[in-house]
């Protein structure tokens, strides 16, 4: 599962804090593609796969709000 995160909107610091918080739930691979950070989620536990992407994005929004 991949999430494309716009660099002009979300802050890198917020993204790194979010990844730090979620790394115990899912294996996360981060790379950059132009104006986007691409977050790849691997080996997520059963039961969390449906909500983890949305929860991750909400947490990222919260972390970025703190950086503004």
């Amino acid at each position: 599962m991949e999430i494309k995160i716009n660099k002009n909107i979300y802050k890198e610091k917020g993204l790194k804090n979010t990844i730090k918080c979620y790394k115990h739930l899912v294996k996360i691979d981060l790379r950059e593609e132009g104006d986007y950070f691409v977050v790849k989620m691997i080996d997520m536990g059963r039961g969390v796969e449906k909500v983890i992407k949305d929860e991750f994005c909400n947490y990222l929004l919260f972390e970025t709000s703190k950086c503004l």
Binding site: K4, I9, E55, L61, S65
Partner: peptide, 21 residues
């Protein structure tokens, strides 16, 4: 962008919100 984030933050409890440009 700051006002968009502040508004989105208010709705975080009940909604999933994702922003893009």
């Amino acid at each position: 962008l700051r006002s968009i984030f502040s508004t989105a933050y208010i709705f975080l409890d009940d909604f999933y919100i994702f922003l893009d440009q």
